[in-house]
Simulated scan of single mutants.
Amino acid sequence: MFRLFKKSKPVKIRSYHESTKYGVAAKDLKELLKKGCSTLKLSFSGAHVCLYSDGTEVTEEFFQTLPDHTELVLLCRDQTWSGVVFDISQLLNTDRHANDLIEAAKGLLSDEQSPKRRKILTDLLLNMEDRSELESREEDENWFKGVDARFKTKSAYMKFNCESRIRGYMKDVENTTKTIQKPRVRANFLKASKRLAEMLKTARYNGCYFDRTEKKPDRLCTQEGWFTCQGSFDQDMCKSLHSINPYGSRESRIVFSTWNLDHRIEKKRTIIPALLEALENHKATDINLNYFYCQLFTRENLKLVHIVCHKKGAHNLLCDAKMIFGQASNQNKGSRKAEKRKRSLK
């Protein structure tokens, strides 16, 4: 009898798969389920209702406390709802309505005063307006603004970008020659430097690391061009999960220039000094230059890191002493020791 005098509560209801919301008025949960199932054409058996915002299941008692026009989700027997997070997940997994979302974000951004919300909307737009599927200058002229005219594709420029960084590392090695005082050591270091340069040239300066058209083992990005931060030198992975696609937009390309190919074992503090020290008493032919090449110019010792994950302090990591000299050098050392023993026995 009391139910006859209950006031109907207006709510907004939607289904699991659709974002369209319908206004429904009901005196209790049972009536809401009946009307909701009828409106959304769902089976009444096993149907249940959750809050759209956080997925809390609505009971009869809870229903009576809800404010008018609360947003609800009507679910079938085996369906669950995790709240607004579910919609975000759906958004990340589909390009559906992407253009509408971009326009909506632009509209919100034009009126938004909160710096925090403006930052969120700006980041959203940066990632939604993704033109990474375009490759040539003709297709995406804006991406190439400020890029030398000789580059006709994004991949060609990104490859050059990586080559330039690696060439810079080689330049650091070559510049060390000027600081060496002893002529013999300087001559040996120059030989080693030239050999490293030849090896690097043969490998095309490892420009493949940034080139998305290269094969998977050789590139650092996905086929679409996404790069993931590999974490600081002392971590196995990036705890902040930084990622970027410089192929997607001009702004992303520019931001990517702040990411570093960081040496785990440091180039200037450790690797080059170790090479120089080894050449103090050995010829260039005695040195395991393959080891130094890998430490200076390859992914064996290089990590791609977001600027936030780039630790500039001393890494305190040393070169592997067992790898510095080649096998031939070790054999020569053994021969010299044997000769000394023979002479001492005479």
Rank of each mutant, 00 (worst) to 15 (best):
I88T: 11
K159R: 15
C294I: 06
F292D: 05
A149N: 11
D95K: 15
E71P: 03
S82E: 14
N332C: 04
H242V: 14
T298H: 01
L32Q: 00
G36Q: 05
K191F: 00
N188W: 03
E266R: 12
L121N: 09
Q223A: 15
R299L: 11
K34H: 12
F189L: 09
D78M: 09
A278D: 00
E60S: 11
R137K: 01
A203S: 02
K215V: 14
S344V: 05
G23L: 12
T177G: 08
V308T: 14
S53Q: 15
H315I: 05
K154T: 10
F62L: 10
L275A: 05
D218M: 05
E163V: 09
T56W: 06
K119V: 07
F63T: 05
S240I: 10
Q79I: 02
D286Y: 02
L275K: 00
F2G: 14
D320K: 03
G225C: 08
R77V: 11
N127T: 11
D54E: 10
A284W: 02
S45H: 13
G46E: 01
D172F: 03
V58Y: 04
L220V: 08
D140G: 03
P246Y: 10
S240G: 02
R77N: 08
K7M: 13
F256N: 10
K194Y: 06
A278H: 08
I13V: 04
E277H: 02
K159W: 11
D148T: 04
T228Y: 13
N127V: 10
A98V: 15
R195G: 07
W226H: 13
T213Q: 15
D28Q: 00
R264V: 15
L108T: 01
L125T: 06
S243F: 04
F62T: 11
I265R: 10
A104P: 02
S232D: 15
M128Y: 07
T222Q: 13
N288S: 01
L51P: 04
K30S: 14
E163F: 05
S110T: 06
I244P: 09
S132R: 13
D211K: 14
S45L: 03
H282Y: 09
S8H: 13
K216Y: 07
V49N: 00
D262Y: 09
L345D: 13
S114N: 11
K30R: 12
N142E: 14
M1L: 15
K7D: 12
K268E: 13
R264K: 12
F325I: 11
S45W: 14
A25P: 06
A192S: 09
Q90K: 12
F160C: 13
G225A: 03
S38V: 14
K215P: 02
K182R: 09
L29M: 12
M170V: 07
F63N: 04
Q181H: 10
G83I: 01
R343M: 08
H17P: 08
F210G: 07
T56K: 14
D130M: 08
Q223F: 10
T285H: 05
L66R: 12
P67V: 07
C37R: 07
R336T: 11
I271M: 03
M199V: 04
D54G: 00
G36T: 05
N175F: 03
H48T: 01
P246I: 14
L74Q: 01
N332Y: 08
N332V: 04
R269E: 15
K6L: 09
V147E: 03
H315M: 06
L302T: 13
P10V: 15
S45Y: 07
Y16W: 15
F62V: 08
L275G: 00
C319P: 01
